[in-house]
Simulated scan of single mutants.
Amino acid sequence: MNFYLPLEEWTNTFVNDWLLPTVGGFFGRLSDGIETVVEGLTDFLIWLPPLLITVILIALTLWLAGKGIAVFTLIGCIYLGSVELWPEAMMTVAIIIVATLLSVVFGVPLGILASKSEVINRIIRPVLDFMQTLPSFVYLIPAILLFGLGGVPAVISTFIFATPPSVRMTNLGIRQVPTDITEASKAFGSTSWQMLLKVELPMSLQTIMAGVNQTIMLALSMAVIASMIGAPGLGSTVLSGISNVNVGLGLTGGLGIVVLAIIIDRITQGIGDKL
């Protein structure tokens, strides 16, 4: 076949001739704002004594997940300190916190809208399918283009990559609220807002928290990938080990990510169970 589709040329022309000149200033200001938040949170977490953070984490896991996870948390925090990766761990946590908050702020309302409108649900579903099937490395390209290198594009790419579970699980949770309960709520004169805030969201909260948990896990999975565009933290340690064929360094950073993943996973699961 001799047919040729100049998609590459069209894309580059669109980006260079329209997108960057038109919205470059907006994304620059957005980048400055996100960078201020990420750097402030990172500096705060590094400033806090590691012992204080360890005690808080142990108390949380003991309350939410039991003694076994509390012991694991103690061992994990000792490990991060003993291999001198505590600052890198706090950098990773800061990026995950900001990206997860953005995902929840955008994802939960979208999930609510999708649960209330079949039209919106049909529009959002293929978009979410596209976002979840697109290779994670592809997210780095627009992030670099619009936000440069560093922690900001890491937050943006992680936010986009990790948002679909929040939307899907919120939509699913609200749709699974029993019909007889919603009908009884209407019969007692509840408005749409009252039914949403006092019936549907409380009853679907555990499902929504499961979506938040998945969002956090996806954000952690982007830690190493985002380090390729200058994201600081444990991912950069693993990337350095790969680049220098330093198996020990890569293993050290990888175990640090595993420790964070298990601790955060058990805490978020425990919050969902408690709620």
Score class of each variant (00 low, 15 high):
residue 64 L to E: 12
residue 161 F to I: 01
residue 118 E to Y: 05
residue 214 Q to Y: 08
residue 122 R to M: 13
residue 7 L to N: 12
residue 63 W to Q: 08
residue 170 T to F: 08
residue 2 N to T: 10
residue 76 G to T: 02
residue 18 W to Y: 15
residue 1 M to F: 13
residue 40 G to K: 01
residue 152 V to A: 07
residue 222 M to C: 07
residue 61 T to W: 02
residue 66 G to K: 07
residue 263 I to R: 00
residue 108 V to D: 00
residue 71 V to K: 07
residue 107 G to R: 09
residue 79 Y to W: 12
residue 220 L to A: 05
residue 103 S to N: 04
residue 229 I to C: 02
residue 28 G to F: 14
residue 67 K to G: 11
residue 180 D to H: 14
residue 245 V to P: 05
residue 151 G to I: 04
residue 205 L to Y: 05
residue 105 V to H: 09
residue 41 L to R: 11
residue 215 T to K: 02
residue 101 L to A: 14
residue 260 L to A: 10
residue 42 T to R: 12
residue 196 L to W: 09
residue 40 G to F: 10
residue 134 L to S: 12
residue 11 T to Q: 09
residue 170 T to M: 06
residue 244 N to A: 14
residue 156 I to T: 04
residue 91 M to G: 02
residue 39 E to N: 11
residue 33 G to T: 04
residue 186 K to T: 10
residue 108 V to Q: 00
residue 26 F to R: 06
residue 72 F to C: 00
residue 13 T to H: 12
residue 104 V to P: 06
residue 271 I to W: 12
residue 120 I to N: 04
residue 76 G to A: 12
residue 203 M to Q: 14
residue 49 P to N: 13
residue 89 A to H: 04
residue 113 L to S: 08
residue 211 G to D: 04
residue 5 L to V: 13
residue 201 L to A: 08
residue 79 Y to G: 05
residue 27 F to H: 13
residue 145 L to Y: 02
residue 31 S to C: 03
residue 140 L to E: 05
residue 146 L to G: 01
residue 249 L to H: 00
residue 258 V to F: 13
residue 171 N to L: 07
residue 198 K to E: 11
residue 115 S to P: 02
residue 140 L to Q: 05
residue 123 I to Y: 09
residue 275 L to H: 03
residue 191 T to G: 15
residue 148 G to Y: 04
residue 86 W to A: 02
residue 219 A to D: 03
residue 241 G to V: 01
residue 236 S to K: 15
residue 255 L to T: 09
residue 229 I to E: 03
residue 242 I to C: 00
residue 170 T to I: 01
residue 136 S to N: 09
residue 179 T to M: 15
residue 141 I to L: 14
residue 224 V to D: 01
residue 227 S to P: 03
residue 91 M to A: 15
residue 176 Q to N: 15
residue 219 A to C: 07
residue 136 S to I: 04
residue 235 G to I: 05
residue 74 L to P: 05
residue 113 L to W: 11
residue 66 G to L: 06
residue 166 S to F: 06
residue 264 I to E: 01
residue 96 I to P: 00
residue 251 L to Q: 06
residue 206 Q to A: 11
residue 195 M to W: 06
residue 19 L to W: 11
residue 254 G to L: 06
residue 157 S to V: 10
residue 119 V to E: 06
residue 232 P to R: 10
residue 178 P to A: 12
residue 101 L to Q: 07
residue 222 M to T: 09
residue 264 I to V: 11
residue 142 P to V: 01
residue 261 A to Q: 08
residue 166 S to D: 04
residue 157 S to D: 00
residue 180 D to F: 14
residue 127 V to G: 10
residue 84 E to P: 03
residue 138 V to F: 15
residue 16 N to D: 12
residue 107 G to A: 09
residue 86 W to S: 07
residue 12 N to G: 00
residue 192 S to M: 04
residue 20 L to Y: 07
residue 89 A to V: 05
residue 116 K to G: 06
residue 259 V to E: 01
residue 41 L to E: 10
residue 107 G to C: 06
residue 107 G to S: 05
residue 272 G to H: 09
residue 160 I to D: 03
residue 49 P to R: 11
residue 229 I to G: 01
residue 257 I to G: 05
residue 11 T to W: 07
residue 215 T to N: 14
residue 253 G to A: 09
residue 41 L to S: 07
residue 103 S to M: 07
residue 146 L to R: 02
residue 269 Q to Y: 06
residue 21 P to T: 11
residue 197 L to G: 02
residue 118 E to M: 01
residue 1 M to H: 13
